[in-house]
Write a protein that binds this DNA or RNA. Structure first.
Lengths: 260, 260
DNA sequence: CAGTGGTCTAGACCACACT
DNA sequence: GTGTGGTCTAGACCACTGC
């Protein structure tokens, strides 16, 4: 029995089906089904999903097969296994993985500085997406986007100037006030308030010289080179959900990358 | 039977033992044993290792346990599985993973540009390690190191200026001529000629302005910000084997990073 | 065809967390 | 103790490669 799921002779399985991609190993099909449930919000960030045995019964496969599916999702940081407790939906609010996507670290061994010390929202408004913004977010030119500009400081030194764009529809109701009063990772706010979980991201990094307005916002002397970091963050199903353009000071910090 | 390997009642196993770390799951112990064989050069890069069944017999465990050990090594890019053919020792000479550690890509969709078009060795000499070089390579200040400076060009545009330092002992006999005449990834040369395989690396990235000599080597106009990329590359057992300081032009290229 | 890695199963037992 | 994930085994069968 290696055709599809569920088998045609057992249509009573609790899982519907529909969109299952072609032929693939059983555990890949299970992985897709779990992914669908995650995307549909059946299990929310930080909640636990059913036990391996429960899922095995639900999908009518062995525990080992469910296990392999969960293994892959866990290695992609979509789920977190905790021995003796259960398997949980990953969240950016967890202390261990907070600011997972922020690769800027202090030169000194102050550890990860536990995220930015101070944050200031400079601007937050809705506008029509320009061509390049629309393309990055897979929208149509002219669709409404939310644009946010903010400055992050470490030890009272302005270090990051960030512009970010979010599609207007999923983030309806997001305001400067809401952003300012929230303490913790922005991506955690997105999860709890808008049901949007960022799963992975891509960054393009360059060295640039800031223009005058950028230099002033970061209170920089002239001729200070900065790291330009353009990020596109994706939710489930590789849907782009955020474009972020950051300028990083790198005189006391550096962008850290592990190559495997 | 979950104590150590091999069990005390079966000392006839073909594997010696000695340095096995404390208590750990069986598959972790197998992983360590395979790692030792890799490090000792029992199986060389691009060669195949014994089949899962052979290894299972050799270590007196089940195939599934060997499998899990190999899985982890494969996910760390130390081994490569090929269905129907066998499991192979990874190498930087493989087309698929050539220039795995070079994250600079062209802005245009010219794909990965297949590595640098031109390479020029500017300098190559042996000298005493300064304090910071020695620390990075876990040597003593004053130990001999090999220092190489080179320029990489894409489409005849000098794009990367790179200084790199290698510990003198393992790389005895490496000369500018040998480097110049070799076509292909430098890390592949290290494997075949010196038995040194780079397994992972860490990079610290900053934005800088080049000094006069650097600017001239890259034929840059004044005030061109560059990406400063400092890399420490490690062989098996997390031994640092190379320090590399690169300056990247980022007007037509960018440093690409995937965040998971 | 034989040999390799890849999938799937079923069952046993271990390690850990909660209560 | 009960329930969870983690390890280990043994055996069956599938998918791919090359002779």
């Amino acid at each position: 029995m290696n055709t599809s799921l569920p088998p045609t002779d057992a249509p009573a399985a609790a899982e519907s089906l529909a969109a299952i991609a072609a032929f693939s190993p059983l555990y890949q099909q299970i992985k897709s089904l779990i992914l669908q449930s995650l995307q549909a919000g059946e299990w929310k960030p930080s909640e636990s999903i059913p036990s391996e045995m429960d899922l095995a019964l639900r999908y009518r496969v062995s525990q080992g097969t469910v296990r392999k599916a969960i293994d892959e999702l866990a290695s992609g940081h979509l789920l977190i296994r905790k021995q003796g407790k259960g398997t949980f939906v990953a969240t950016h609010a967890e202390h261990q993985v907070q600011y997972r996507f922020l690769k800027l670290v202090a030169d000194q061994g102050d550890l990860n500085t536990e995220g930015p010390a101070q944050r200031e929202i400079v601007d937050c408004k809705r506008l029509r997406a320009s061509a390049d913004i629309a393309r990055a977010l897979a929208l149509r030119s002219g669709d409404t986007v939310l644009q946010v500009r903010r400055v992050l400081s470490f030890a009272n030194v302005p270090t990051i100037l960030e512009d970010l764009w979010l599609p207007g529809t999923p983030f309806k109701g997001l305001t400067a006030e809401r952003l300012a009063e929230y303490h913790g990772p922005m991506y955690a706010l997105f999860e709890t308030e808008f049901g949007v979980r960022m799963v992975r991201a891509e960054e393009k990094i360059r060295a640039v010289l800031p223009d005058k307005s950028q230099r002033e916002l970061l209170q920089l002397p002239p001729n200070t080179p900065l790291l330009s970091v353009e990020r596109i963050a994706y939710t489930y199903k590789d849907t782009p959900m955020e474009l972020r353009r950051g300028l990083y000071r790198t005189d006391k910090h550096h962008y850290h990358n592990d190559l495997n």
